[in-house]
Design a protein around this nucleic acid. Sequence first.
DNA 1: TTCTATCCACGAACGGCGTTCGTGTCAAAT
DNA 2: ATTTGACACGAACGCCGTTCGTGGATAGAA
Lengths: 246, 246
Amino acid sequence: MSNRIERVEHELPEPPWRTPRKQPARRSLSRETIVEAAMGVLRKEGIDGVSMRRVATELSTGAASLYAHVANKDELVELLFDEVAGEIPLPEPDPARWREQVTQLWVDSRATLLRYRDIARAALGSVPFGPNALRVTETTLQLLRLGGVPEQAAAWSADVVGLYVSASAVEGAMRAQREEGRGQWDDEAGQTQEFLASLPADRFPTFVSLLPHLTSGTEEERFRFGLELLVSGLAALATGPREAGP
Amino acid sequence: MSNRIERVEHELPEPPWRTPRKQPARRSLSRETIVEAAMGVLRKEGIDGVSMRRVATELSTGAASLYAHVANKDELVELLFDEVAGEIPLPEPDPARWREQVTQLWVDSRATLLRYRDIARAALGSVPFGPNALRVTETTLQLLRLGGVPEQAAAWSADVVGLYVSASAVEGAMRAQREEGRGQWDDEAGQTQEFLASLPADRFPTFVSLLPHLTSGTEEERFRFGLELLVSGLAALATGPREAGP
DNA sequence: TTCTATCCACGAACGGCGTTCGTGTCAAAT
DNA sequence: ATTTGACACGAACGCCGTTCGTGGATAGAA
């Protein structure tokens, strides 16, 4: 952070009463400062706002300078993802409450990802193996095992649920972005409603008859519904909550 | 198709023995020809290969010409997605076999999407309301209702499963792309194995102990596992297969 | 048939992107 | 004091989506 301030001052003419170059004026860039700057852009503008040029500008330098610390944009995005994963709150596993805890963990994961706009897209492009993402997976696996979910099922579930959480977060971010782009009069939501209402009931009878149910509920409610399906499916596979192993 | 040929001939000097301009040399572009050309590029190179310039080049014209028929790239991608959705095979609903049919429908959906590389990304960016996508949703809803799944659950499940199928297809496409980019000696898979094997068991005890299970199975097997969780969760909500209403 | 209005194909350009290269400069090692 | 090596950085390359203005062909009116 102090590095950032240093760099900004560097642009101004040196105040002559201060000993110049007390702290290194170079060496101001580092993985950490770059990720920090990128996180700010990410939060404000989403992943498409995070361009090498944009992040570099934030640090008062040129895009080329970043490549000494980061292999390419993909690597930077992976670093960002893991930084975000570090903000997911982890529970203290309690075998008696594994279902509740595992559900909460995934709801929190989705919410945390959403706070950083469409960062979840990074999780669908490359399996997240950063240290913080690993901690989330580790906790997930612990909870499932404590709940008596068999090993193979627990392992594959972690994969499945990661996909589901990421997909839901991406969709949520896209919807938020779309809604943000509209003024309040230009309501795309209304147009969609109108379009759906105009669908021919003879071609899509079930769809039309279920329209009220299809459009009901918030996105988080729908997400929780899917989670519930998955968790109850897992509970059915479980050998009962186990305090000690079989 | 004949339009495409016409355009190509148009580049050559006119053979003087042939009546020129028999068929319209202009009017050669249309939504259909554009989508057709884009589908070819999509299949070969994925969604990132489908640039307006690239598609235009395929039609021996310039990018600007496409904008008379298609609002922008997003709209083109939506058209592509629905075209792909049209290739998903739909079952003849049979109440007795609803679980099997619904599972097969979703497995087929994923496989069809995967045949067109990462086109599934389009489904996460905008809810697919094209006619062909609607037909798939309609069939899904029919099957669930025939199986006795309650209305609200059926409606939300269609949403949930759409997300899951798309996410799985995106992940599969990304993996395929990564594997394609490597020569056979430069095995990233091996490096990943090595990395995972080197993880400290004291920090990620459950993860490490489940490593064999985490890396086992094909991607489709894992996908089917998640599907099974969802479907059995739905079956638990169902009021038994119903030939007639409740 | 001739004129005119409309459509639309298209080249060029704008402002963005990720990435590479070569240069120059500074801090530490000798 | 000199060398050396790391690294900041401007410029450039080749992409991208999209817009604008031009000009030519076509279809309908006269």
